[in-house]
Protein backbone atom coordinates (compact mmCIF):
# COMPACT_ATOMS: atom_id res chain seq x y z
CA UNK A 1 0.00 0.00 0.00
CA UNK A 2 1.29 3.43 -0.91
CA UNK A 3 0.52 6.69 0.88
CA UNK A 4 -2.89 7.24 2.43
CA UNK A 5 -3.50 10.99 2.44
CA UNK A 6 -6.07 12.26 4.93
CA UNK A 7 -7.35 15.79 4.29
CA UNK A 8 -7.75 17.29 7.72
CA UNK A 9 -9.34 20.61 8.56
CA UNK A 10 -9.09 22.34 11.91
CA UNK A 11 -12.41 23.91 12.87
CA UNK A 12 -13.80 26.01 15.71
CA UNK A 13 -16.20 24.21 18.03
CA UNK A 14 -19.65 25.08 16.70
CA UNK A 15 -21.07 25.78 20.17
CA UNK A 16 -18.34 28.39 20.75
CA UNK A 17 -19.12 30.38 17.63
CA UNK A 18 -21.52 33.28 17.90
CA UNK A 19 -22.80 35.78 15.42
CA UNK A 20 -22.13 39.39 16.22
CA UNK A 21 -25.06 41.38 14.84
CA UNK A 22 -23.07 44.64 15.12
CA UNK A 23 -20.14 43.69 12.93
CA UNK A 24 -22.04 41.01 10.97
CA UNK A 25 -19.20 38.58 11.50
CA UNK A 26 -18.58 35.55 13.69
CA UNK A 27 -17.03 36.27 17.08
CA UNK A 28 -13.91 34.18 17.35
CA UNK A 29 -12.39 35.26 20.62
CA UNK A 30 -12.07 32.51 23.19
CA UNK A 31 -13.08 29.91 20.66
CA UNK A 32 -11.70 26.40 21.03
CA UNK A 33 -10.55 24.57 17.93
CA UNK A 34 -10.35 20.89 17.12
CA UNK A 35 -9.77 18.45 14.29
CA UNK A 36 -13.01 18.35 12.31
CA UNK A 37 -15.03 15.43 13.68
CA UNK A 38 -15.53 13.52 10.44
CA UNK A 39 -11.81 13.98 9.66
CA UNK A 40 -11.02 12.24 12.96
CA UNK A 41 -13.14 9.34 11.78
CA UNK A 42 -11.17 9.41 8.51
CA UNK A 43 -7.85 9.38 10.40
CA UNK A 44 -9.01 6.43 12.50
CA UNK A 45 -10.05 4.57 9.35
CA UNK A 46 -6.71 5.32 7.66
CA UNK A 47 -4.85 3.90 10.66
CA UNK A 48 -6.96 0.73 10.50
CA UNK A 49 -6.24 0.38 6.77
CA UNK A 50 -2.55 0.89 7.46
CA UNK A 51 -2.53 -1.73 10.21
CA UNK A 52 -3.95 -4.25 7.79
CA UNK A 53 -2.38 -3.26 4.49
CA UNK A 54 0.69 -1.18 5.29
CA UNK A 55 1.41 2.22 3.76
CA UNK A 56 2.01 5.61 5.32
CA UNK A 57 -0.65 7.92 6.69
CA UNK A 58 -0.04 11.55 5.70
CA UNK A 59 -2.25 14.34 7.04
CA UNK A 60 -2.77 17.27 4.70
CA UNK A 61 -4.29 20.53 5.78
CA UNK A 62 -4.70 24.01 4.38
CA UNK A 63 -4.93 26.79 6.92
CA UNK A 64 -3.10 29.25 9.17
CA UNK A 65 0.03 28.30 11.16
CA UNK A 66 -1.88 27.64 14.39
CA UNK A 67 -3.29 24.45 12.79
CA UNK A 68 0.10 22.85 13.55
CA UNK A 69 -0.65 22.04 17.20
CA UNK A 70 -3.85 20.22 16.19
CA UNK A 71 -2.18 18.29 13.39
CA UNK A 72 0.26 17.05 16.03
CA UNK A 73 -2.70 15.44 17.78
CA UNK A 74 -3.24 13.49 14.56
CA UNK A 75 0.42 12.51 14.60
CA UNK A 76 0.01 11.35 18.20
CA UNK A 77 -2.96 9.23 17.09
CA UNK A 78 -0.53 7.42 14.77
CA UNK A 79 -0.25 9.36 11.50
CA UNK A 80 3.25 9.21 10.02
CA UNK A 81 3.52 12.70 8.64
CA UNK A 82 1.65 15.98 8.35
CA UNK A 83 1.83 18.74 5.80
CA UNK A 84 0.35 22.18 6.31
CA UNK A 85 -0.39 24.43 3.35
CA UNK A 86 -0.08 27.89 4.71
CA UNK A 87 0.19 31.16 2.88
CA UNK A 88 -1.64 34.49 3.03
CA UNK A 89 -2.55 33.91 -0.61
CA UNK A 90 -4.68 30.90 0.38
CA UNK A 91 -6.98 32.96 2.59
CA UNK A 92 -10.62 33.39 1.60
CA UNK A 93 -10.72 30.26 -0.54
CA UNK A 94 -14.10 28.82 -1.47
CA UNK A 95 -14.42 25.08 -1.88
CA UNK A 96 -13.09 25.14 -5.44
CA UNK A 97 -9.96 27.12 -4.59
CA UNK A 98 -9.50 24.93 -1.50
CA UNK A 99 -9.76 21.82 -3.67
CA UNK A 100 -7.37 23.22 -6.27
CA UNK A 101 -4.76 23.95 -3.60
CA UNK A 102 -5.17 20.56 -1.92
CA UNK A 103 -4.97 18.88 -5.34
CA UNK A 104 -1.65 20.60 -6.12
CA UNK A 105 -0.26 19.39 -2.80
CA UNK A 106 -1.52 15.84 -3.33
CA UNK A 107 0.26 15.76 -6.71
CA UNK A 108 3.42 16.94 -5.01
CA UNK A 109 3.17 14.30 -2.25
CA UNK A 110 2.57 11.69 -4.97
CA UNK A 111 2.81 7.92 -4.65
CA UNK A 112 -0.62 7.51 -3.06
CA UNK A 113 -3.38 4.93 -3.20
CA UNK A 114 -6.08 6.66 -1.21
CA UNK A 115 -7.20 10.17 -0.40
CA UNK A 116 -9.62 10.30 2.52
CA UNK A 117 -11.76 13.29 3.45
CA UNK A 118 -14.47 13.79 6.02
CA UNK A 119 -18.06 13.88 4.70
CA UNK A 120 -18.28 17.54 5.66
CA UNK A 121 -16.90 20.06 8.11
CA UNK A 122 -18.72 21.47 11.11
CA UNK A 123 -18.08 25.10 10.05
CA UNK A 124 -18.57 25.65 6.28
CA UNK A 125 -20.10 22.22 6.07
CA UNK A 126 -20.57 22.16 2.32
CA UNK A 127 -19.23 18.65 1.75
CA UNK A 128 -18.12 19.90 -1.67
CA UNK A 129 -14.36 19.50 -1.32
CA UNK A 130 -14.17 15.69 -1.75
CA UNK A 131 -15.91 15.56 -5.15
CA UNK A 132 -14.26 18.73 -6.47
CA UNK A 133 -10.89 17.33 -5.40
CA UNK A 134 -11.69 14.03 -7.13
CA UNK A 135 -12.48 15.85 -10.36
CA UNK A 136 -9.34 17.98 -10.25
CA UNK A 137 -7.19 14.89 -9.64
CA UNK A 138 -9.20 12.85 -12.16
CA UNK A 139 -9.86 10.08 -9.62
CA UNK A 140 -12.90 7.91 -8.93
CA UNK A 141 -14.95 9.15 -5.97
CA UNK A 142 -17.06 7.40 -3.37
CA UNK A 143 -18.82 9.68 -0.93
CA UNK A 144 -20.46 9.08 2.48
CA UNK A 145 -18.49 5.87 3.00
CA UNK A 146 -18.90 3.92 6.24
CA UNK A 147 -16.84 0.77 5.56
CA UNK A 148 -13.76 0.11 3.45
CA UNK A 149 -12.02 -3.06 2.40
CA UNK A 150 -8.71 -2.96 0.52
CA UNK A 151 -7.63 -6.08 -1.32
CA UNK A 152 -4.56 -5.71 -3.48
CA UNK A 153 -5.35 -2.88 -5.85
CA UNK A 154 -9.08 -3.35 -5.40
CA UNK A 155 -11.14 -1.14 -3.17
CA UNK A 156 -14.56 -2.09 -1.87
CA UNK A 157 -16.66 0.41 0.06
CA UNK A 158 -20.09 0.74 1.59
CA UNK A 159 -21.61 4.12 0.87
CA UNK A 160 -24.83 5.68 2.09
CA UNK A 161 -27.40 6.60 -0.55
CA UNK A 162 -30.97 7.77 -0.16
CA UNK A 163 -32.92 5.13 1.77
CA UNK A 164 -30.03 2.75 2.30
CA UNK A 165 -26.59 1.88 1.02
CA UNK A 166 -24.57 0.54 -1.88
CA UNK A 167 -21.51 -1.66 -1.99
CA UNK A 168 -19.21 -0.18 -4.62
CA UNK A 169 -15.83 -1.14 -6.04
CA UNK A 170 -13.03 0.63 -7.82
CA UNK A 171 -9.33 0.48 -8.43
CA UNK A 172 -6.88 2.76 -6.66
CA UNK A 173 -5.97 5.55 -6.33
CA UNK A 174 -9.41 6.81 -5.36
CA UNK A 175 -10.99 9.49 -3.17
CA UNK A 176 -13.40 8.68 -0.38
CA UNK A 177 -15.40 10.90 1.93
CA UNK A 178 -15.91 9.25 5.29
CA UNK A 179 -19.18 9.42 7.13
CA UNK A 180 -19.20 11.18 10.45
CA UNK A 181 -19.45 8.87 13.46
CA UNK A 182 -18.54 5.57 11.75
CA UNK A 183 -15.90 4.66 14.32
CA UNK A 184 -14.46 5.68 17.67
CA UNK A 185 -11.29 7.65 16.91
CA UNK A 186 -8.46 6.44 19.14
CA UNK A 187 -7.02 8.75 21.75
CA UNK A 188 -3.66 10.35 20.99
CA UNK A 189 -0.87 8.23 22.45
CA UNK A 190 0.67 10.10 25.36
CA UNK A 191 4.29 9.27 24.58
CA UNK A 192 3.88 9.91 20.91
CA UNK A 193 2.23 13.24 21.69
CA UNK A 194 5.26 14.27 23.73
CA UNK A 195 7.53 13.21 20.90
CA UNK A 196 5.39 15.05 18.37
CA UNK A 197 5.44 18.24 20.43
CA UNK A 198 9.21 18.12 21.00
CA UNK A 199 10.78 16.48 18.01
CA UNK A 200 8.40 16.06 15.12
CA UNK A 201 8.56 18.86 12.64
CA UNK A 202 5.68 19.52 10.38
CA UNK A 203 6.25 20.23 6.69
CA UNK A 204 4.92 23.61 5.69
CA UNK A 205 4.34 24.46 2.04
CA UNK A 206 3.56 27.94 0.81
CA UNK A 207 2.10 28.84 -2.58
CA UNK A 208 5.56 28.97 -4.15
CA UNK A 209 6.28 25.37 -3.08
CA UNK A 210 3.31 24.14 -5.06
CA UNK A 211 2.85 23.87 -8.80
CA UNK A 212 -0.20 26.05 -8.89
CA UNK A 213 -0.64 29.57 -10.19
CA UNK A 214 -1.20 31.86 -7.19
CA UNK A 215 -4.29 33.32 -8.88
CA UNK A 216 -5.94 29.89 -8.71
CA UNK A 217 -5.77 29.90 -4.89
CA UNK A 218 -7.49 31.88 -2.14
CA UNK A 219 -9.98 34.61 -2.94
CA UNK A 220 -8.76 35.08 -6.51
CA UNK A 221 -9.20 31.39 -7.29
CA UNK A 222 -12.72 31.32 -5.88
CA UNK A 223 -15.91 31.37 -7.91
CA UNK A 224 -18.25 32.20 -5.05
CA UNK A 225 -18.45 35.42 -3.06
CA UNK A 226 -20.04 35.77 0.36
CA UNK A 227 -22.13 38.94 0.11
CA UNK A 228 -23.13 39.01 3.74
CA UNK A 229 -23.63 36.95 6.85
CA UNK A 230 -26.90 37.12 8.72
CA UNK A 231 -28.17 35.43 11.82
CA UNK A 232 -30.20 32.35 11.11
CA UNK A 233 -33.01 30.88 13.21
CA UNK A 234 -34.31 33.63 15.33
CA UNK A 235 -37.43 31.63 16.05
CA UNK A 236 -38.49 32.45 19.60
CA UNK A 237 -39.99 29.61 21.58
CA UNK A 238 -42.43 29.91 24.46
CA UNK A 239 -40.37 27.85 26.91
CA UNK A 240 -43.32 26.94 29.14
CA UNK A 241 -42.22 24.73 31.99
CA UNK A 242 -44.37 21.62 32.53
CA UNK A 243 -44.02 20.74 36.22
CA UNK A 244 -45.53 18.13 38.54
CA UNK A 245 -45.37 14.37 38.84
CA UNK A 246 -44.62 12.21 35.83
CA UNK A 247 -48.35 11.45 35.63
CA UNK A 248 -49.23 15.17 35.58
CA UNK A 249 -46.52 15.97 33.05
CA UNK A 250 -47.69 13.15 30.79
CA UNK A 251 -51.26 14.39 31.05
CA UNK A 252 -50.20 17.82 29.85
CA UNK A 253 -48.39 16.22 26.91
CA UNK A 254 -51.53 14.19 26.11
CA UNK A 255 -53.58 17.37 26.16
CA UNK A 256 -51.31 19.02 23.57
CA UNK A 257 -51.21 15.85 21.47
CA UNK A 258 -55.02 15.80 21.37
CA UNK A 259 -55.12 19.46 20.34
CA UNK A 260 -53.12 18.50 17.28
CA UNK A 261 -55.49 15.63 16.44
Amino acid sequence: MRNIIVCTKIVPKAEDMNFDPETKTMKRSGVENQINEADKNAIELSLKIKEKNGGRVVLLSMGPPFFEQYLKIGIAMGADDAILLSDRLFAGADTFATSATLAAAIRKIGDYDLVLCGEETSDGGTGQVPSQLAELLDLPQMLFVSEVDVDGNNLKAKRTIKGGYEIVESGMPAILSIELGINQPRFPDFKRKRWADKEFSLTIWSASSLEIKPELTGTSGSYTIVKRLTEYFTHQRQRISVEGTAEQQANKIMEILREYG
Binding site: D94, F96, S99, G127, Q128, V129, L143, I161, K162, Y223
Partner: peptide, 21 residues
Amino acid sequence: YQGRDLAGRLSARLRTGLTAN
Protein backbone atom coordinates in the same frame (compact mmCIF):
# COMPACT_ATOMS: atom_id res chain seq x y z
CA TYR B 1 -26.72 12.12 -1.63
CA GLN B 2 -26.90 11.90 -5.41
CA GLY B 3 -27.31 15.64 -6.02
CA ARG B 4 -24.30 16.50 -3.89
CA ASP B 5 -22.17 13.76 -5.41
CA LEU B 6 -22.95 15.03 -8.90
CA ALA B 7 -22.91 18.79 -8.26
CA GLY B 8 -19.40 18.85 -6.78
CA ARG B 9 -17.84 16.93 -9.63
CA LEU B 10 -19.75 18.78 -12.35
CA SER B 11 -19.07 22.25 -10.95
CA ALA B 12 -15.36 21.53 -10.82
CA ARG B 13 -15.38 20.33 -14.45
CA LEU B 14 -17.35 23.41 -15.52
CA ARG B 15 -15.05 25.65 -13.46
CA THR B 16 -17.94 27.42 -11.84
CA GLY B 17 -19.18 28.27 -8.36
CA LEU B 18 -21.33 25.93 -6.30
CA THR B 19 -23.22 26.66 -3.11
CA ALA B 20 -24.24 23.90 -0.76
CA ASN B 21 -27.39 22.84 0.99
